[in-house]
Design a protein around this nucleic acid. Structure first.
Length: 645
RNA sequence: GCUCACGUAGCUCAAUAGGCAGAGCGUAUCCUUGGUAAGGAUAAGGUAACCGGUUCGAAUCCGGUCGUGAGCUCCA
């Protein structure tokens, strides 16, 4: 320490990232320090990172350290910002409705929420407005948020006195050694680890978005609380942009586009059971065609198994014990049957029709299998979550030492497929669920196999504890919809159980029977879900190869109808999905209609085109491309279709 | 399944302290033959999701059922 003055003058040195170092007296808060070094930095900072930990700006500095300010642009900064907003929400609710118990109120990806128990007096959507007004008032009051460290006993006593039963439960569940902290702003105090903004006035724009139910601690056996969702931004413009994003997302909603583009429908007569319209089924068949080509190349054999199979088969597979509440049942000739919720038992029956040498494995059997699952009514969601869907399934029967290669093969295939459509995806490893069968050793073995595969290839993933299939752990591939909600699509499930249950075998090099290992896997996942995600991903503007109508011929007057018919015939016979709009409407009208229907190519034919045997090409995105020789255009569009552009 | 909300023409939406159900788009017919995002006229189209109650009278108020939306739980 450079100072040779008295010990009252002890100073600590703070390294401020991107600024330099500063010496201050111990006990100086970060806020004071920043005010000293740069008012601009102080204004932008929402929190700080000291030696890696996020702390509030009112934290006193006690020793030498490196410090980095955190702004709204940092994910952690936005979290702190919105976490404080959630406290302001809770305070506002407490002010308006005294008789309410608090649940939890964390920040989430685009905002925050807070759960409340209104004790039998649920609030309504309209009430959000006045709560929001009270929040604005609290922001205006610019109340400082004070961090309090208290003992477990103090905390319990305080929240018991306040009647905050949920908070008491949370405190009781905290580990012994954990520091208990609360944050106080004005008359409001909440159990919270923080950190928070220094004061409520730091919040600029708060907005409540919607009201929903949520079980206490996410458990359906617990009380249903009311959850208020909101968001907060430092600038009005950012909120407007976010609301615009939500608005745009609504336009891309596959349920809306499905209706507008005439792709599919749902009916009260069959909730959760999708109806594919002619245009929708075209897209699906193209996806399937691509799928068959790729699977054929990758050495898969295609099979098809029945939708209804005897109940006994499902008892043997474990579905009866572990999956019954999701299954539909029926009777045939007095015998109990089940509608298949999965394709595996069918594939296994086929496997069992033969004897296999170790040289025959891996045996890859693919099936576009229609399954039915009884999903709870509240979970249905357009094509994303339905009660009947087709899985692009495959079951790979293999030797234990083939696990790595086969998993790798499937992972590569998933990657190749998703890249064709330009999807970003992320991976989860799901482990043993509560309701499952098999020994701990087998689960351990299977889970380790998958995990070490991912680790070995340096593939980033997150672990989804307890979300595996009842017969084995799985690697899941998730895609995002237009609202950035994620949906599981591809999955690879490693299974040692079914081969055991069904007594599957192959003959090894030693001439003895051995147990094969099974891989259950899907690439698209469910055709319905993948289709829905594709619709939202493309906003309904499908690439040429998938477009239900690839080109519309638009004659300008009746005099071009003969030529239009000729053009149509030529393209149609080459396999192009082409229509003619020969209504007596103006060109502009027909073009508008084709644009709205997102048809990739419009071929305008007037007198000039008839005389020169050309078509005036208008491309969906690029607009008018001018006249092109009919033969040249035909070759071009066929080329693009074949390249799956 | 749970919480809150919603259900009016094929679609998007109006209306009224409870008092004959409306518009635009789309559809049909006719006029128009027009060169790159909406030409004009006329017409058809509704058991107000369904069932019940209150009322002289219910699309409107109340209850139930079904469906849908946001979320929770669950899952491809």
């Amino acid at each position: 320490m450079e100072s040779s003055r008295g010990c009252n003058d002890v100073r600590i040195e703070i390294q401020i990232k991107n600024w330099g170092s500063k010496k201050v007296a111990p006990g100086t808060t970060i806020m004071e320090l920043l005010g000293d070094v740069s008012p601009k930095l102080q204004k932008e900072a929402l929190a700080a990172r000291i030696n890696g930990d996020i702390v509030g700006l009112l934290t006193p500095l006690q020793e030498d350290c490196t410090l980095e300010t955190v702004s709204f642009d940092d994910p952690e900064g936005a979290e702190v910002y919105r976490h404080t907003a959630s406290h302001v929400l809770a305070q506002a609710v407490k002010r308006i409705y005294g008789n309410v118990r608090l649940g939890i109120g964390p920040p989430i990806s685009n905002g925050f929420y807070y759960d409340f128990d209104f004790k039998g007096n649920p609030i309504k959507t309209e009430d959000l407005e006045k709560i929001e007004q009270e929040m604005v008032q609290i922001v205006k009051e610019d109340l400082p948020l004070e961090r309090l460290e208290i003992s477990r006993e103090q905390a319990l006593q305080m929240f018991k006195e306040k009647g905050e039963d949920y908070k008491v439960e949370l405190i009781n569940d905290l580990d012994e050694g954990v520091k208990i902290t609360c944050y106080r702003q004005g008359d409001f105090i909440d159990l919270c680890a923080g950190p928070h903004l220094p004061s409520t006035g730091k919040l600029k724009v708060v907005k409540l978005l919607n009201l929903a139910g949520a079980y206490w601690r996410g458990d359906e056996r617990n009380a249903m609380l009311q959850r208020i969702y909101g968001t907060a931004f430092p600038k009005q413009k950012m909120l407007t942009e976010y609301l615009d994003f939500l608005e745009e997302a609504r336009k891309r909603d596959h349920r809306k586009l499905g209706r507008e583009l005439d792709l599919f429908s749902f009916h009260e007569e069959g909730p959760g059971f999708p109806f594919y319209h002619p245009k929708g089924i075209i897209i699906r068949r193209e996806l399937e065609k691509f799928w068959r080509e790729e699977h054929c190349k990758a050495g898969y054999l295609e099979i098809e198994t029945p939708i209804i199979l005897n109940k006994q088969l499902w008892e043997q597979s474990g579905h009866w014990d572990h999956y019954q509440e999701n299954m539909y049942f029926t009777k045939i000739d007095g015998q109990d049957y089940a509608i298949k919720p999965m394709n595996c038992p069918g594939a296994i029956l086929i496997y069992k029709t033969g004897m296999y040498s170790y040289r025959d494995l891996p045996l890859r059997m693919a099936e576009m299998g229609l399954v039915h699952r009884h999903e709870k009514s509240g979970t249905l969601h357009g094509l994303m979550r339905v009660r009947s869907f087709t899985q692009d399934d495959a079951h790979i029967f293999m030797l234990p030492e083939q696990i790595d290669d086969e998993v790798a093969g499937v992972m590569e295939m998933v990657d190749r497929f998703y890249k064709v459509f330009g999807f970003n995806y992320f991976i989860e490893l799901s482990t043993r669920p509560e309701k499952s069968m098999g020994s701990d050793e087998m689960w351990e073995k299977a889970t380790t196999a998958l995990q070490s595969f991912l680790d070995g290839k340096n593939i980033p993933y997150i672990i989804n504890e307890g979300d595996g299939a009842f017969y084995g752990p799985k690697i899941d591939f998730h895609l995002q919809d237009s609202l950035e909600r994620t949906w599981q699509c591809g999955t690879i499930q490693l299974d040692f159980q079914m081969p055991e249950k069904y007594g599957l075998s192959y003959i090894g090099a030693d001439g003895q029977k051995h147990r094969p290992v099974m891989l259950h896997r899907v690439i698209y996942g469910a055709m319905e879900r993948f289709f829905a995600l594709l619709i939202e991903h493309y906003g309904g503007a499908f690439p040429l190869w998938l477009a239900p109508v690839q080109a519309v011929i638009i004659p300008i007057t009746d005099r071009q109808h003969v030529y239009a018919a000729e053009v149509k015939k030529l393209l149609w016979e080459k396999g192009v999905r082409v229509e003619t709009d020969d209504r007596s409407e103006k060109v502009g009208y027909k073009i508008r209609e084709a644009q709205v229907q997102k048809v990739p190519y419009m071929l305008i034919v007037g007198e000039k085109e008839v005389n020169s045997r050309t078509v005036a090409v208008r491309q969906r995105e690029q607009g008018d491309l001018g006249a092109v020789d009919l033969q040249v255009f035909t070759n071009r569009i066929l080329g693009e279709i074949n390249q799956r552009k």
